[in-house]
Design a protein around this nucleic acid. Structure first.
Lengths: 237, 237
DNA sequence: CAGTGGTCTAGACCACTGA
DNA sequence: CAGTGGTCTAGACCACTGA
């Protein structure tokens, strides 16, 4: 407790009050001058405490008016989309990736996915299967922009899956995941050793660096074998 | 550009370099003293620029050593778990909730879900269906702790679904979502007007206020009719 | 106009830790 | 020991905006 810095104490005190409901959405929080007096500190210290609360969307501030608890709009959770090998090994299973197809070619103009990724530049197209304890866990198809990631041509995906390679080598600035469910089609059912139509959790992820698309990946996880967990969080306006 | 504050310029300059790959994971970023000279500002201003980069996990700092670009570890995304009526109406569809069953009783000690929620106190158990444009969208079963939410007994769920009621009336401090896929069983398939075994996206959400469980809800969304979207984010070490 | 938050300065002392 | 980051102070000027 006493090891906490003053700005940490101010911040956590306010967080606690907001999350416990003691301070409700729309309520005014004390002015900077008042917090200075309460905590016996300088204004910069109060400011340092409030900045992360603004960034987290817990409060909003208006000049001449004051600072207020924000109104929660949605349940906003932090979703960890983990590196699959680490996730699987972390569960005590063995992990293996099997590369099925690998193709380097010019992006097809009429294909929306490919055009959005690399314009009319070159792309690498990969399909593969993730195994946990030698049981099929997920089917993956992936497109990678060679303009954005030229080094990818030298990568060896017989040992390391492309997602891990990218995660470790290529920084990204923006990503979007779409999560849904679908029944496995005949081809995927065969690869995953499932009856056709078997339910799968789908994740479609697009990743950008700046305005440049890096990769587009679609994964189908065998229902029951894998789930995503999202925890905690709060976002408001 | 010139409207940007100094700390915003320092921060975005560094972000740009890191995200463009000009600064790679493990690279040292300039010392605070160097940034002071580069930007002609005080050390506090540099500090204000670096703090959000630390919070975002883009850099890490070690005393006596310096500050470095962090190594990306996992994709950490913000998942919006929206209020369903708002989401549906936002898509231009009509929303309707149909309450199927409502039961108030003592929690069953042998049932792990119920015991975890309310000890041996009383609970409300609800099942219902969410409709979009009068087509079944999701089946929902929900348990609510009456100890945590006594007012819920007076709520009318013929118009408003219980999730919205709770979102608007009960603040929560912690939540956990488990996302997966499953084939609809016979009972749920009938309610959702699907063939048995039809793939569904499942969301299981537990919500707490402090140490008290508020609600546990399991939702099954008809595959193709609904998806979750998670955006952006970054976590590193 | 007056009071708020936004930003910034030019210092200061400290804890930590590699050399 | 020396140099880094962590924190803090006591000011300052400004833009914004409700009264």
């Amino acid at each position: 407790m006493s090891e906490m810095s003053i700005h940490d104490r101010i911040r956590t005190d306010l967080e606690t009050q907001i999350l416990s409901g003691g301070l409700k959405p729309g309520d005014r929080i004390p002015f900077e001058m008042e917090l200075m007096k309460q905590y016996g500190c300088a204004r910069m210290t109060v400011n340092k405490a409030l900045a992360p609360l603004v960034a987290a969307g817990l409060i909003y501030r208006r000049k001449r008016v004051g600072s207020f608890v924000a109104h929660p709009r949605t349940h906003s959770m932090v979703l960890e989309v983990p590196d699959l090998p680490i996730e699987v090994v972390g569960r005590g299973q063995t992990y293996r990736y099997e590369l099925l197809t690998r193709d380097v070619r010019k992006a097809v103009r009429s294909n929306e996915d490919e055009r959005g990724l690399a314009g009319t530049g070159r792309i690498m197209a990969l399909t593969g299967v993730h195994y946990a304890d030698d049981k099929p866990l997920a089917f993956e198809e992936r497109l990678i922009s060679l303009a954005a990631v030229p080094d990818i041509e030298k990568a060896d995906f017989s040992t390391e899956p492309p997602g891990s390679w990218l995660l470790h080598h290529v920084p990204w600035t923006m990503a979007e995941n779409r999560i849904g469910a679908i029944g496995a089609n005949d081809q995927i059912a065969e690869v995953l050793k499932l009856p056709a139509g078997w339910p799968c959790l789908t994740i479609e992820r697009r990743t950008w660096r700046g305005d440049d698309g890096i990769t587009l990946v679609r994964q189908q996880f065998v229902a029951g074998e894998y789930g995503l967990i999202a925890r905690f969080g709060h976002t408001a306006t």
